[in-house]
Nucleic acid binder design. Structure first.
Length: 583
RNA sequence: GGAGUGGUAGUUCAGCUGGUUAGAAUGUCUGCCUGUCACGCAGAAGGUCGCGGGUUCGAAUCCCGUCCAUUCCGCCA
């Protein structure tokens, strides 16, 4: 080793030791007769000192010539400081340097390597290797490292076995768009990168590995978001001979363990909620239950009183904002503008102020008496001082709009404490989802999800109402993971494919291997997958997963550092038998 | 695919209802400074105002197009 210690470990107790440190120059403070250098590595910062008279002239000269991010090797004695710095752990000591070597010079970096960097997102991504020198980013990757270690240790301790599955697999029509990889050996044919190891983990169950897990990269060629990358990491799990309750229990256990071990947090009850209730009371399949403000439907009270907008609406529904009756006209107008933004798309917003004196003031006073409004308030549990906000229209859209408004109110009223974690299991998702574009049903989760067994007969009569034995883990409005009990027999699987509009031939071509496997003694099984990047960002208190990935891609799915994707040589195209079409 | 916001010094931004030589902070460089740690003081260098076109006597500023970044909608079993 070139060094005897790291830059983060020396303390007053080490005084008078001879040490050698290596690291990067964080800052040089040249005060003429004295020079200080803050030397930084992964572990911390230690101050080096050079003093005219007691430091050799040539050493002082080298010290004065160092720029930001030079790589140094410094040897000397640990001494107690005259002027201590209580802001850093090594602030009581400094190194009186007797030998100094420049291991490498550095160009001046394009942004400052500090927690409060002056660099913008774009620049930091281009020089990501410099960005990663910043403590703030390094800490996030350290959090991820701990999460990885704790996940492996917990699941391994529960007899889960980590098995790797292939990355070059087969393209399937269901779900997200695949990333495609051409095969040179099999010209004209293509692999796909896995959207998840779904079918492989089911095959592992057939093989008898009754508890499997893998921390695995998955790939989806869809548009990006702050919490979505084209390649992302899942904690992927599958178990045999289990019920839904077994799975919920074990992964509640994993989640609790991670909270405890990584950020020393005890989380409360994992509430169970029906999907239908999540939609009805929160307008979302991933409700944020850190705050209440549940939806209350007002059709029976608000309709047939002459207000045309409500009378013609499929749904009239509102929320009650506690203590907001004194909001100004301007504030309420801002809410109206919020819901009328094209992304939300509401036509308008009705409010009712529950005044302190027991009267009501609403934007629809023309149509509703004080008694009418009192009835609304009673149904909504609104008291004097509260503000009722009501939207109306087509049911699905209105619920979605009110969901956005509810979350917005949560922000405005500071009800979303990032240190407060409220886990929630959302249960019994619909099995199928009508797709307007292709005019057929799609599997809401995936085609291997088991329907609720007693509802299988409804597949023929009301397919849209059949529930799946599927579940999502939601924490603070973030979908952390999801899974299901799977189909494990050939007949049910064939029935599912039929309802998804697959012909027998298509089903056999795409998933014949799985249907074959189901004929050789497939155990009942089910599983779950956690979005690992999102879990990390949730633990780290961030909305973006990018900083928890060492080398992320930007919103155009590009890596601006290595400049990918990129064109390839025409020889490569020829070898692969690919002609590019120029549109 | 659609909508919003942004692109000006190495960097972060101001300037934008058109008008002399485009500013500030920070970083960089030079000099001074023996207890700094956001060191201080004095000075200097540093600009294709994203790119292309248009309007105008005159464009960083107005208009059109385009590229890039970012947020959201669609999409994401």
């Amino acid at each position: 080793m070139l060094r005897t210690h790291t830059c983060g470990e020396l303390r007053l107790a080490d005084a008078s030791k001879q040490v050698t440190l290596c690291g990067w120059v964080q800052k040089t403070r040249d005060k003429g007769g004295m020079v200080w250098i803050d030397l930084r590595d992964r572990y911390g910062v230690t101050q080096l000192i050079f003093e005219e008279g007691s430091t050799a002239a040539e050493v002082l000269e080298i010290a004065k010539g160092t720029g930001r991010e030079f790589v140094l090797k410094a040897s000397g004695e640990v001494v107690e400081r005259y002027a201590k710095n209580d802001k850093i752990p090594t602030g009581e000591i400094e190194i009186k340097v007797s030998e100094l070597e420049i291991l490498n010079e550095a160009k001046t970096p394009p942004f400052t390597i500090e927690n409060e960097t002056d660099g913008g997102e774009e620049l930091r991504m281009k020089y990501r290797y410099l960005d990663l020198r910043r403590e703030e980013v390094r800490e996030k990757l350290m959090l991820r490292h701990k999460m990885l270690q704790e996940t492996r240790s917990y699941l391994s301790g529960q007899s889960f076995m980590e098995v790797e599955t292939p990355v070059l697999i087969k393209s399937t029509p269901e779900g997200a768009r695949d990333f495609i990889v051409p095969s040179r050996v099999n010209k004209g044919e293509f692999y796909a990168l896995p959207q998840s190891p779904q079918t492989f983990k089911q095959l592992l169950m057939v093989s008898g590995f009754d508890r499997y897990f893998q921390i695995v990269k998955c790939f989806r060629d869809e548009d990006l978001r702050a919490d979505r990358q084209p390649e992302f990491t899942q904690i992927d799990c599958e178990m045999s001979f289990v019920t839904r309750e077994d799975i919920l229990e074990i992964f509640e256990g994993l989640t609790r363990h991670l909270f405890k071990a990584v950020i020393d947090t005890e989380v409360g009850e994992f509430v169970h909620m029906q999907y239908d209730d999540a939609i009805k009371y929160y307008g979302s399949d991933k409700p944020d239950v850190r705050f209440d403000m549940k939806f209350v439907e007002l059709n029976d009270l608000a309709q047939n009183k002459g207000f045309n907008v409500f009378d013609q609406a499929e749904l009239v529904v509102g929320i009650c904002a506690k203590g907001c009756a004194d909001w100004t006209r301007k504030q309420v107008d801002a809410l109206t503008d919020f819901v009328k933004r094209p992304q939300i798309g509401a036509k308008g917003l009705v409010y009712v102020k529950c005044n302190a004196d027991g009267t009501f003031k609403s934007s629809v006073d023309k149509f509703y008496s004080q008694e009418d409004l009192k009835a609304w308030a009673d149904k909504m549990g609104a008291e004097a001082g509260d503000l009722i906000l009501v939207l109306s229209g087509e049911a699905d859209k209105t619920r979605k709009q009110l969901c956005e408004l509810r979350l917005h109110m949560g922000d405005l009223l500071n009800l979303k404490d990032p240190k407060d974690f409220k886990p929630l299991w959302v249960l019994d998702f619909p099995l199928l989802e009508w797709d307007e574009e292709s005019e057929r049903y799609h599997a809401m989760h995936h085609p291997f999800t088991s329907p609720k067994l007693d509802e299988i007969p409804m597949l023929d009569t009301e397919p849209g109402k059949v529930k799946a034995n599927a579940y999502d883990l939601v924490i603070n409005g973030v979908e952390i993971g999801g899974g299901s009990i799977r189909i494990h027999d050939k007949e049910t699987q064939a029935l599912m494919f039929k309802h998804l509009g697959f012909s027998d031939e298509e089903a056999r071509e795409q998933f014949g291997f799985l249907m074959d496997a189901f004929e050789y003694g497939a155990p009942p099984h089910g599983g779950i997958a956690f979005g690992f990047d999102r879990l990390c960002s949730l633990f780290g208190g961030s909305d973006s997963i990018r900083d928890f990935i060492a080398f992320p891609k930007n919103t155009s799915a590009r890596d601006v550092m290595i400049e990918s994707p990129s064109q390839i040589a025409s020889e490569q195209l020829v070898e692969l038998g690919i002609d590019l079409r120029v549109d």
